[in-house]
Design a protein around this nucleic acid. Sequence first.
DNA 1: ATCTGCCTCATTTTT
DNA 2: TGAGGCAGAT
Length: 757
Amino acid sequence: MTLLEGLNQAQRDAVVYNDGPLLIFAGAGSGKTRVLTYKIAYLVENKLFKAHNILAVTFTNKSAKELKNRVEDFVGPHGKYINVGTFHSICARILREDIKVLGYTSNFTIYDTKDQVSTIKQILKNEHINPEKVTPKAILNKISKLKSDNVMPEGFVARKFVPVEELVEKIYPIYQRTLKKCNALDFDDLLILPVKIFKGHPEILTKYQERYKYILVDEYQDTNKTQFMLISMLSRKYNNICVVGDDDQSIYSWRGADVQNILDFEQTFKNSKIFKLEQNYRSTKKIISAASAVVENNNIRADKKIFSENEDGENIEYLDGMNEYDEATKIGFAIEREIRSKKLNFKDIAILYRTNAQSRVLETILNRQKIPNAIVGGVRFYERKEVKDIVAYYKFFANIKDDESVRRIINTPPRGIGKRTIEIIEEFAHKNNLNLFESLNDINILDLTPRAKTALGKFYKFIADYQKLLDSVSLEEWARMMIDGLGYFNYLKSNDTEEAKQRSANINELLNAISDYCSVSEEPTLQGYLEEVALVSDIDGWQDQKNAISLMTLHSAKGLEFPLVFITGLNQGLLPLGNAFDNENQLNEERRLFYVGITRAEKKLYITGARSRNFRGQDSISAPSMFLQEIPEELIFNLPQLRRKTVTSSDYSQQSNYSPQSSFTPKASNFGGYTKNSYDSKPQPIQQQNSFKRREPVASAPTSSSGIPEIGMRVNHKIFGTGIITGKIGFGHNPKLTIRFNSHGVKTIFGKYVTIL
DNA sequence: ATCTGCCTCATTTTT
DNA sequence: TGAGGCAGAT
């Protein structure tokens, strides 16, 4: 049968097996997407299932689209009837159809993280709670964690004397009620509410079980408990479920993903079968050996091993930067060398990093070296202030109960509705359990200034007018007319800066996006557009046709491949991040992240680090990443060496440990373990004045010698922090100063010891 | 009501 | 470093 040609034995077995639940362990680069595609095609071609009865859950919208296209290539146009999407988008679809049984309406709004934080803050205000130690963000994280474990407010009991939990116990129910009052759902609700519906309404569950008779789940290692419940409920009737994943690539436990889902698959789904795809077709032997050696340092793993029959390939190469600018510069040079010698295109190259913040330096240096580059993600388009403003209007028009959007738009652009006025409305609404916009009907009974009332009346009328207009013109036209009606462009132009121009351009780009949506969608609605906006991922917008180097986080890189890959920031505290080395689970996840990075590379891998990094405005010594030691010595050039034996906490963190040593043992397992202590202390601030020119010609870093201190100036002292000069004796650069420090009182200090701010 | 500047504080990854 | 919050000026 032609369909099975071009598959190896293991892949073929996995495609053909259809007698109950199956788990496919698909190692990195083992042809996973291929198997998924063939499997769906096989089911449809052999008339085992109708296309519209197949549900495939992918991790990103981008991979959903790809999968759909590939299936269509195989089985023809009716392939487009398979249901493909991310967990979140599929759940949104289910909820639009059936959420009314929970008392929401189908035009619900999806709240993003900022909306959530702002909701929490408002609740704290309303409840007169002023947490000292706990941030709204921390409360939110805990709530989100509970939701991904399918714990509803009534099911949570705080541990005594755990401040966050005690607060969450109080706030979680209110938060949930508040969202419902606003007819709003957060990301976790999208997953948890369908489960709630299925539990309470068997007839609805049956409907979906009949609709989705065969279920496939990609990236199964990154599912959380709620997602697990969802698919196990849906598949319970027909028991046709196929999950694909790789526990070694589980990198989302911080948002509730539970590797146990994949490790326990056999126990959970009775009579299931497991297949393993272990041959890697993507990378050279050396890259695969290095990746395996690294990940084998993790203790809890499913039993499997990937191998490559490709060429040996080149050694991995380490680039050693003095600081992050030097690191980036060396990457730039390496790129030029590689492109010259191997006839690569820019788009064959990716630079990966742990945190988005690292992209700035890389971008700066690459631009300076005239190497075309494109950052994936980062400050997202839809998170820019001006875009959020306009989208908030759109969201509000789609759902006037959306109080968060009202808070954002009510005085943007400024229309004379001030803080006090909003407070009064807020209190009134809270007392009477009304939505904010709803309470504007009662402005006359509120104790407001006439000016405020007029302003509110105008706002109300604006909304009513454009609400009406929405029914009579196309979405595309309306979107622009609404912005014009607001005078938003004029508001931006009121300060004629480069920034304002950029913001205007962003609004135009937003309008373009809406036009695109309208032309692609069969039945364009404001709601439909907003849903798309809410659920886009960073990688979805990635243009692989553009000939530029891709810069992205290790997380975003999952599922992609490039001939040449740079993994940057191989330093303790960055990769592994923070204090992850304190905690075995976290450390394992950081290691998997590194593993994911390594296995993106087809032909050649560079890993890079820096001896010093700027962290929050301070230059700090940066120790080499412990992961470097886990790559076998014979596979890597220019490995920075740690001094072995009796490394104490202090000499580890305060000195550079790159002194070459020949008696180096490559395996971390031989290392006697990286004890907590050897990596313990945070990087210490150091003085870095002469070594490497950090910034471009502009000016050398301002030090005390660059200006003469005067009374009234703000200064910084290494120990006492910031303060203001209140007295001065002497002249020139080094007078005797009296300084009032913010937190250390008044001191007398010589000028050379402080920096003018 | 609005704007400006100063102060404080900080985990990161994303749907 | 840079975002967000707040006090004080306009």
